[in-house]
């Protein structure tokens, strides 16, 4: 019996949300943003920890040392590559938070339709207009956050 490659399958289901409608896009974006935010958080803590001496934190470093590391870190990070990354992160954070509220509410059974006798053509009651609205509002908020951040870093819209 053949079993198709599990890693390929996993990546495909995460990264190619085509064909299954809006909720599959919501699923993929929620997962990707979740992983990206966690990674950013870990790197962010690691990076800022350097300023106070990393693992040497308990033997409080001198002020000069902290200032030097801080300056080096800021210099290392201030390039267009990291700026663009932060703008994308703003998109992901806003989407994840706002769409997360929708998912959270559905765990309480809120925003769901009621079971009914299925009549063709079927409209799943698991996906209500209220939920769709929150999904699209999440996208709007995320795009606004992206544009705002891009403008801060690159002055693309307003001077």
């Amino acid at each position: 019996m053949s079993v198709r490659n599990p890693v390929v399958t996993a990546l495909k289901t995460w990264l190619i949300p085509r064909r299954y409608g809006v909720m599959r896009w919501s699923y993929s974006l929620q997962r990707i943003s979740g992983v990206a935010i966690t990674l950013y958080f870990v790197l962010h803590i690691g990076e800022t920890a350097n300023v106070i001496g990393g693992s040497q934190v308990w033997s409080i470093p001198s002020y000069e040392y902290a200032r030097q590391v801080w300056t080096e870190t800021v210099e290392f990070l201030s390039n267009p590559f990291f700026d663009a990354g932060l703008a994308v992160l703003a998109f992901l954070i806003f989407f994840h938070t706002s769409n997360g509220v929708r998912l959270f509410l559905t765990h309480f059974g809120i925003l769901l339709g009621k079971p009914h006798r299925p009549e063709y053509p079927y409209h799943p009651a698991s996906m209500t207009k209220a939920q769709l609205t929150i999904f699209w509002v999440s996208i709007l908020l995320a795009v606004a956050a992206l544009l705002y951040s891009l403008n801060i870093f690159f002055k693309v819209i307003l001077p």
Partner: peptide, 25 residues
């Protein structure tokens, strides 16, 4: 994770995603 794809493809209108969310509640 409530991707809802099950309910999109069900040929009998079962809406498994709804049952699962209600079960989770």
């Amino acid at each position: 994770h409530f991707a809802g794809s099950c309910s999109q493809v069900c040929p009998k209108g079962v809406d498994p995603a709804l049952a699962i969310q209600l079960l989770r509640r």
